[in-house]
């Protein structure tokens, strides 16, 4: 299977700035975009090149995504030192997390997709890292992406992903705990 596994980092300070918006997002809204708002704040999603006749490329009222997804609990959870907390997400009934472990700025675990799996197309595990007061310092991500040239996973009823996410270097000295959740999961 050819897939790209990457770890992405996002500045913690940006997350703090987004905290207000995230706190008001609905659980299943998974807030990397705003809910439809007043007309004067709305943007339109439009295709950048000329629209072909008939294709619907304009989506009134939808604010484009601002970046990688977050989960509402990211800024409210307060994991104890050395602990790994769980962040609620839209697909929590489709997988099981086990062997969660935090040590020295690194969180790891095993994710088992429990819903019907012929192949795991997309998975993102989001990790938040916290200081001793439970404040969010920054995030990291584990990404599984199955591209169009893949070999098939076969008839495995469960897809298992072992993940490890390392805190951004600049926050590692202060990070003492983590929280993990899944904002992106696509399997068929």
């Amino acid at each position: 299977m050819r897939h790209r596994v990457r770890q992405l980092t996002v500045l913690g300070i940006v997350l703090v700035a987004l905290a207000t918006g995230l706190a008001t997002a609905a659980l299943n809204g998974v807030g990397n975009r705003e809910a439809d708002g007043p007309a004067d704040t709305r943007n339109r999603v439009v295709r950048t090149s000329a629209e072909p006749t008939g294709a619907r490329t304009s989506l009134p009222g939808l604010v484009p995504a601002r970046g990688e997804p977050d989960l509402p609990g990211l800024v409210t959870v307060r994991p104890a030192s050395g602990a790994v907390a769980r962040l609620a997400g839209p697909f929590d009934d489709r997988f099981r997390l086990s062997r969660l472990d935090y040590a020295s700025g690194r969180v790891s675990g095993v994710l088992t997709v429990t819903s019907d799996v012929s192949e795991l197309l997309e998975l993102q595990v989001l990790a938040g890292f916290y200081d001793g007061d439970g404040r969010l310092l920054g995030t990291g991500r584990f990404v599984h992406h199955l591209d169009g040239h893949h070999e098939h996973a076969g008839a495995d009823p469960h897809a298992i992903e072992r993940f490890a996410i390392v805190a951004p270097r600049r926050i590692q000295p202060r990070a003492v705990s983590a929280a993990v959740g899944v904002p992106v999961l696509v399997n068929e």
């Binding site: 299943n28 809204g29 998974v30 990397n32 975009r33 995504a65 997804p69 199955l146 992106v184």
Partner: peptide
Amino acid sequence: GCQGPSYSAAS
């Protein structure tokens, strides 16, 4: 794989 509810670059 870009099914939602969220955008991600990889998907």
